[in-house]
Design a binder for these strands. Structure first.
Lengths: 188, 188
DNA sequence: GATAAATCTTAATCATGATTAAGTGATCCT
DNA sequence: AGGATCACTTAATCATGATTAAGATTTATC
């Protein structure tokens, strides 16, 4: 029984110990080595992953062959490719461990059974999706309104600990900038 | 009883006629005149709106004083400001009717009562949020990968009818471009 | 129908940040 | 330890698309 996940659940829904156990019974604890993949292009994503240790990057390969990072996944966050998971279509995405990592796997099949057994889980993921969507919209607003320099500085300010954990060139990719440009920002 | 909304509900969940009626009873049918606002900056958003006629723009005023459009809302779509609605905080956004319009208003209070009376509505909005989030992610990918010209052409191709309905300068704002640049694209 | 307001166009100049290229340190691997 | 890959830096050049400014055209209003 994962204490962080329990706390996380209870942030959003009222849930008894028994119900938490039912939820956690649907999860498989797994480990993965640095640089290995949770998902690769062409595979259909069939699960959501709750990260308990390490961090992941979620990226695709664009038309010029560059790896474009769309998200980082860190401890106590869910990571998955919703486009592939929800529509059961082959993914265009990669999800890769950036450190040796641990996570809880919630397969879509197990989740659908849970929705029936425990309808409040439906509520939980409804709320999670609302939060996730709001964050996505916030990011779009930043992309519209901020200069490259401001994007970088806003990220560093909001995620100071994480910024040191990630190679600069991956941060650049996530922000839609080049490593050279980040270098230029920092030198001033 | 709105036939479009019923069809829309049944795209996502199994729901009886009686239950549809219960859902529709929570909705208020309203009209609004062109250029009037569903939401203004500083007000807290307290409802979701299902558009049945006309279209809306959802925008904020950026630091330079420009209106930045984040979304258009068209017939048979929901529109609301999730950031304000979910966190019950004053909105930074405006939602404005671009034509004389009709919509169904679902207040957050009514929705929360519905979640309890009719838990499958929780499921419905969980699914809607997943779809909405996937669209938001797709948009971020476009913003990363496409040139201004490609952004414009992709939008026109995906929304040919709508592109004629919207002034060019608003489309420019939505795409993060200037009207002058759109003009340049079209002249070639 | 006349006037005003809103929208679109053209063209010159400018700025942000990409691209290219080279070089410098780190870190990993045997 | 030595070589190789990986990560970061610097600097010159380039391109996309913004800004500015003016004019043209369309639409709304009385």
């Amino acid at each position: 029984m994962n204490a962080n996940l329990t706390r996380y659940l209870r942030n959003y829904i009222d849930i008894s110990d028994d119900e938490v156990e039912l939820f956690q019974a649907a999860l498989k604890t797994k480990t993965i080595q640095k640089k290995d993949y949770l998902l690769k292009e062409g595979k259909t994503c069939t699960a959501r992953y709750f990260i308990t240790k390490g961090y992941f990057r979620h990226f695709y390969i664009d038309t010029k062959g560059n790896e474009q990072i769309v998200h980082f996944g860190i401890e106590n966050w869910w990571i998955t490719d919703y486009a592939s998971l929800v529509n059961t279509t082959p993914s265009k995405m990669y999800i890769q461990a950036m450190e040796d990592a641990e996570y809880l796997e919630l397969s879509q099949d197990a989740l659908e059974a849970l929705y029936i057994k425990l309808p409040k889980i439906e509520r939980f993921f409804r709320i999670i999706m609302e939060k996730t969507y709001i964050a996505s919209q916030q990011r779009i607003e930043y992309m519209f309104s901020l200069s490259g320099k401001q994007l970088y500085e806003t990220f560093i300010l909001a995620n100071p600990e994480f910024a040191n954990r990630v190679p600069q060139y991956m941060l650049a990719s996530y922000l839609g900038l080049t490593p050279e440009f980040i270098s230029k920002i920092k030198s001033k």
